[in-house]
């Protein structure tokens, strides 16, 4: 394998990691409350702004910034759930979907009013820009941290869902809300937890996004949010492993389309990506790792 291909694979892996983090939270919320949450990407934006405008600006070290950002993401998502989605839990699915679009636009516009739509330059503290040689390819310290942090987060999440009481309660709620409630599971608390975990991951993705690209603005969450939706659908909505896989595939596909095809096709990247989405859905209607659809009330 040439160094060039390896380099592009690394590029895809790093981009895919960030998509995967957002997609997993997105999918988790969907699996439990059947809500397509378009405001999920905006939680990543809030995470990025709190990272850079509050924590990094206050001169905190990275090992404080990361947990603080996780906490902000979790809190924001849980508050949104409590204020907006909980009151209409019994409403049809489409209400939640439309509401999430509304919440997304609201967050973006409040962001523009408070912070202006001008992108601002940001920097993570520390020597994260250092380049390392990896079999002829180039990786920065931040790239390694992004990939590692994503893998650790996914691992912890899997253990959490499989092993802990709350995780088991989540899976039960995801199977059937009414039955879980009848079995004595505090459904509201479980749903709040799902939003909080998803929000924390989105916040972390926002931190990585801002740290890697160095520019943040109030609309920055929209595209990653949309990509997370695509990734979750490719992987099979509701499947956490599927969402992660979808995120990595999407990141890899975007990089490879620009990197490998003749340059005149590069501008059709998004067309290729969405074409891929349609193709996956035609061949495997439940996504790569999704379970066959079963109608639920």
């Amino acid at each position: 394998m040439s160094a060039y291909v390896l380099q592009q694979l690394i590029n895809g892996l790093v981009l895919g990691s960030m998509y995967a983090l957002v997609a997993v939270g997105f999918s988790m919320i969907y699996s439990i409350v059947r809500l397509i949450n378009f405001a999920h990407g905006d939680v990543a934006m809030i995470g990025a702004f709190s990272t850079f405008l509050v924590f990094a600006a206050a001169g905190l070290p990275l090992w404080v910034i990361v947990p603080a950002t996780l906490a902000v993401g979790a809190a924001v998502a849980a508050i949104i759930e409590f204020l907006v989605f909980r009151p209409q839990r019994q409403a049809p699915q489409v209400n939640g979907f439309i509401t999430s679009l509304g919440v997304s636009i609201l967050i973006q516009n409040v962001g523009i009013l408070l912070l202006s739509a001008q992108p601002r330059s940001v920097r993570l503290p520390g020597l994260l820009r250092t380049n390392h040689d990896f079999f002829g390819a180039r990786v920065t310290t931040l790239d390694i941290l992004i990939v590692a942090a994503t893998l650790i987060s996914l691992l912890v999440l899997t253990l959490f869902v499989k092993r802990t009481r709350l995780g088991i309660a989540m899976r039960a709620t995801s199977e059937n809300v009414s039955a879980a409630q009848l079995m004595g599971i505090p459904v509201n608390r479980v749903i709040t937890a799902a939003f909080a975990v998803g929000g924390a991951l989105a916040g972390l993705a926002g931190l990585m996004w801002g740290g890697r690209y160095g520019q943040i603005d109030p609309l920055m969450g929209f595209v990653p949010g949309l990509k997370a939706f695509v990734a979750a659908v490719i992987g099979g909505v509701g499947s956490l492993a599927g969402a992660a896989l979808g995120g990595y595939l999407l990141g890899m596909a975007e990089i490879m389309i620009v990197g490998m095809l003749p340059s005149e096709y590069g501008s059709y990247r998004d067309a290729f990506v969405f074409g891929l989405l349609i193709l996956v859905l035609l061949v495997m209607p439940n996504g790569l790792l999704g379970k066959p659809a079963e109608e639920r009330a």
């Binding site: 060039y4 592009q8 981009l15 690209y213 520019q215 920055m220 975007e254 990197g259 340059s263």
Partner: peptide, 10 residues
């Protein structure tokens, strides 16, 4: 677009 790593590698 925010990620230009592919163009840079090229």
């Amino acid at each position: 677009d925010t990620d230009f790593s592919s163009q840079i590698s090229r």
